[in-house]
């Protein structure tokens, strides 16, 4: 376990060092990502003030929801969502063989070497938005923050599972770049209050693909809103994570490598 952690850190250090070799690119990418996400927040404010907003959600509460979404997206994008492009690129180039030759978990190596410094900008934008929103809404007690942090981890687990599923699909079907766009569209649904969705969609987003855990669940709990069946939603997340892991393992067993 310790050894796996060390390998992960060593690989991440090399990913950062690789990006540091091109300073301008790194700074521009991170800044672009931060500005991009800040624009989303600005648009939310414009839409919110020019319309009826989200029923039951004040502007700072809506910003907390979106800030949480951006934060989870930023942490996931930096830490593990690079597994998707890393897998697609390696499968296309026939380089997954090289990862399979290493005496480590292939999934872990794909995650570690997919570490993406660009998304740090997004995570920082998320922290800024959450800080601003909670300053307007607060103060919150320590227990509220602990529950918020724990639910952020649940949201990250769902995001990781989606990344693992896309990685498995890349191993099975090779060219799956569009899958990332489908995934993007899917988890954009997590950017808005689940109460706005149709009941059937809400059930799907709660129990089948628990997208609502990404932002709606932690934000609602911090705001002390009632979320029905929260225990079942977390259980569904655990099942979803296990299924994604199982799918990935069945995909790597079916891996056919490239000719040569």
């Amino acid at each position: 376990m310790t050894s796996a952690f060390i390998v992960h850190i060593e690989a991440v250090k090399r990913m950062i060092a690789s990006r540091l070799a091109f300073r301008t690119d790194l700074l521009l990418s991170a800044a672009t990502m931060a500005i991009n996400e800040s624009l989303v927040v600005i648009f939310t404010i414009i839409i919110y003030t020019a319309s009826e907003g989200f029923p039951g959600w004040s502007l700072p509460a809506a910003l907390l929801l979106q800030g949480t979404f951006i934060l989870v997206h930023g942490i996931g994008g930096t830490g593990f969502m690079g597994v998707i492009w890393n897998t697609v690129r390696k499968v296309e180039a026939g380089e997954l063989d090289l990862v399979l030759l290493q005496p480590r978990s292939t999934l872990q190596m794909l995650i570690a070497t997919g570490f993406d410094t660009e998304d740090i900008g997004r995570a920082l934008a998320g922290i800024a938005t959450v800080t601003y929103a909670t300053a307007q809404l607060g103060p919150f007690g320590a227990w509220a923050w602990i529950r918020y942090a724990l639910l952020l981890l649940v949201g990250l687990a769902v995001l990781l599972s989606l990344g693992i599923i896309c990685s498995g699909l890349a191993i099975r079907f090779v060219k799956t770049w569009r899958m990332y766009e489908v995934l993007d569209a899917l988890y954009m649904l997590g950017e808005y209050p689940a109460t706005l969705q149709q009941p059937t969609v809400r059930i799907v987003l709660s129990f089948a693909i628990p997208i609502i855990t990404i932002a709606y669940l932690p934000a609602s709990v911090l705001l002390q809103m009632t979320v029905p069946h929260i225990g079942w939603i977390i259980a569904a997340t655990a099942v979803f994570t296990l299924l994604s892991y199982g799918f990935w393992h069945s995909s790597i067993k079916a891996y056919a490598s490239a000719g040569g």
């Binding site: 050894s3 060390i6 390998v7 060593e10 690989a11 090399r14 060092a17 690789s18 070799a21 091109f22 180039a93 026939g94 380089e95 063989d97 090289l98 290493q102 005496p103 480590r104």
Partner: peptide
């Protein structure tokens, strides 16, 4: 096919192998 990290000196790849 290369197992070395393209933008880093080979010594960095060797150290990663040491951990792996």
């Amino acid at each position: 096919k290369s197992q070395l990290w393209w933008d880093l000196p080979p010594i960095d790849s060797f150290r990663l192998m040491k951990s792996i």
